[in-house]
Design a protein around this nucleic acid. Structure first.
Lengths: 118, 118
DNA sequence: TAGACACTGAACTACATGGTTCAGCATTTA
DNA sequence: TAAATGCTGAACCATGTAGTTCAGTGTCTA
């Protein structure tokens, strides 16, 4: 069984970097939707919305299925898991760095006021 | 208290969509670094690395400070907090949807193979 | 069966991105 | 003070993106 090896983070973060696409994800979190209904909701041509959906699909964030003449979009299986992992891991790095550097920064501030005082 | 200093998610997700820049963040998680040392590490011209750092800086993920002729980069204060929040909130949406739709999805997979030629 | 509807694809515009080179400028250092 | 170092900015190139219009194709529905 070939489980979708989640596409590289490049694709999903790029997909998330657009407010319209984040909006689409938000929307699909509430209910599945056709391309047309999404295009309406975001005031955009059908063709334009189709491109956004394709970006989301390539990133594995959305899957689509065409039934009759309607293509229905829903959230994808990969479910932001890899993205959440990367972010969480690095958020900890950020915090660790700040703890380590807080002293240095306050030192720096002393020196600054030192200078301006002289 | 929501601090709205943090630049829009557009910028930070776009910044994260490049492997080099994720590598830089990774690197800065270990130690601060000059532009030159980062350029060396990622085998890139100084100018190229400078652009990446600027992208990270605009996204609030990195701050830099020039002392003498050396510009030192370190992780920024915003610390991926807003990004983590967005992702976590929506990851829950994904899961909720799957719980509700598991049966339908397995049906879909049958039809998907029908359709994947397009 | 005719017309409306939902999508698809090609082509185009305008602009952003990732990378380069080259020519500087300012700061160290020998 | 001359040379090396570290960064900066302009300019260029190839490619990608966000959006459009227009001309289809296939599917419903009256």
């Amino acid at each position: 069984m070939v489980q979708h090896l989640s596409p590289p983070l490049d694709l999903s973060f790029a997909a998330l970097s657009d407010a319209t696409r984040r909006g689409v994800i938000d929307q699909l979190g509430r209910a599945d939707a056709s391309i047309t209904s999404l295009a309406d909701k975001f005031q955009m041509t059908l063709t334009g919305m189709k491109k956004h959906v394709q970006v989301l699909e390539r990133a594995g964030l959305v899957v689509t299925q065409k039934v009759g003449r309607v293509r229905t979009c829903r959230l994808g299986r990969s479910g932001l898991r890899a993205e959440a992992e990367w972010i969480e891991a690095h958020r900890k790095l950020f915090e660790a760095r700040f703890d380590a550097l807080d002293e240095i920064i306050s030192e720096m501030k002393l020196e600054e006021s030192d200078e301006s005082a002289s």
